[in-house]
Design a protein around this nucleic acid. Structure first.
Length: 357
DNA sequence: AAGTCGTGGGA
DNA sequence: TTCCCAAGACT
């Protein structure tokens, strides 16, 4: 039923020798600390290697142990994640680490059953940590691995369907090198990231002699991935107000703890903004009176599924006895220390650049 | 199962 | 410009 590669041992040797020779020198490949591997795997979810590197270095420097991360304040944690996106990853990582510290004596579990109970640790991350940090022969199937294996064995199942992943997990468990599961799994991913890319570079491939898709000349057609009917992008006009009191402090609030940009900090925003004057929007939405309104920036911020069309304004408020619910004033230094999403960072950077302080 | 959750890079 | 993402997990 399942297509089986014939020369498993030779395939393993070809992949492993290539990986050991050609692997990129990445910071998380210089350690076998399970916690550090875990951090890197979470950061790498849906995120490019080049983007992750500086975040990983700073994160490990700030939270060098699981105890340090477990004891961190949420704002300090999110500050380390600022700009990386998918901020729930950070909260889930800390929650998982706290579980390890409190329930597992500070040792990351070394079996799939237990490690999979940790917050934010799904099937891929579990297998990656187990194989890379502990040398346990477990599958770690991500998008790269599905692309590589679908070509290698000419598997034509639709990888857009979640249950298809089980096929690849089974294949990897059959193929995986028992002596060096870490290099085997990373080798598959490295191959997918550098050679067996969506537009494959088969002439450089160390395992093309084993590749059924290459033999059939169908490597470009795999993997099969049905197009998800792409949702139409919602476009939301947003007016954002960077407001100072007479002390020069800035009005900000923390976003709700669930949903988009959860728990990050922002200036007062009106969404959707209408064509009213900024003065009127602030009055009607927040019940405050602004003076000295100036334009700061107009830009679009594009999320996966929606776009904010941002108009940002600077202003002052003189009567501070009425403040919109949930908002507080912060000094320049305090604002600097708060974790902010990229669109807010853009406004804040422009304020500092323009000397509006 | 399908929608949600960020961002920046490259074709 | 527009599109598709890139080492997924959660609900």
């Amino acid at each position: 039923m399942m297509q089986i590669i014939v020369k498993k041992d030779e395939f393993r040797e070809a992949l492993l020798s290539w990986y050991r020779r050609e692997k990129r020198d990445l910071p998380w490949r210089r350690t076998s600390n399970p916690y550090y591997i875990w951090v890197s795997e979470v950061m790498l979810q849906q995120t490019r290697v080049d983007t992750v590197i500086p975040y990983y270095e700073r994160f490990i420097a700030s939270f060098p142990t699981m105890e340090a991360l477990a004891g961190a304040e949420e704002n300090d944690l999110l500050k380390m994640w600022e700009g990386l996106g998918y901020y729930s990853r950070a909260r889930n990582l800390q929650a998982g680490v706290r579980e390890v510290v409190s329930d597992y004596g500070g040792e990351v579990p070394s079996n799939r059953t237990e490690i999979s109970t940790l917050k934010g640790v799904g099937p891929y991350t579990a297998g990656a940590v187990l194989s890379i940090a502990y040398g346990v022969p477990e599958h770690a199937v991500d998008g790269n691995v599905m692309r590589v294996i679908s070509r290698l064995l000419l598997i034509e199942e639709d990888i857009a369907i979640p249950r298809t992943k089980k096929i690849f997990e089974t294949v990897v468990m059959d193929l995986i090198d028992q002596e060096d599961p870490s290099s085997f799994n990373q080798g598959l991913m490295e191959l997918g990231a550098t050679i067996c890319t969506p537009k494959p570079k088969c002439l450089l491939c160390p395992v093309r002699d084993f590749c059924l898709a290459f033999q059939e000349g169908r490597q470009e057609a795999l993997p099969i991935k049905t197009k998800k009917t792409k949702m139409k992008m919602k476009i939301i006009p947003v007016a954002s107000f960077a407001i100072q009191n007479s002390e020069g402090e800035w009005l900000m609030r923390q976003r709700p703890s669930k949903g988009l940009l959860a728990s990050l900090w922002e200036f007062p925003m009106v969404e959707p903004a209408d064509d009213k004057t900024p003065q009127k929007m602030a009055h009607e939405h927040f019940g405050i009176e602004l003076v000295g309104i100036v334009d700061i920036l107009i830009f679009k911020h594009i999320f996966s599924h929606l776009t904010w069309e941002m108009k940002s304004f600077g202003a002052r408020i003189e009567k501070t006895d009425i403040i919109p619910d949930g908002y507080q004033f912060f000094s320049q230094e305090e604002v600097e220390a708060l974790p902010k999403p990229v669109p807010v960072l853009k406004i804040w950077d422009e304020i500092k650049r323009g000397g509006l302080k």
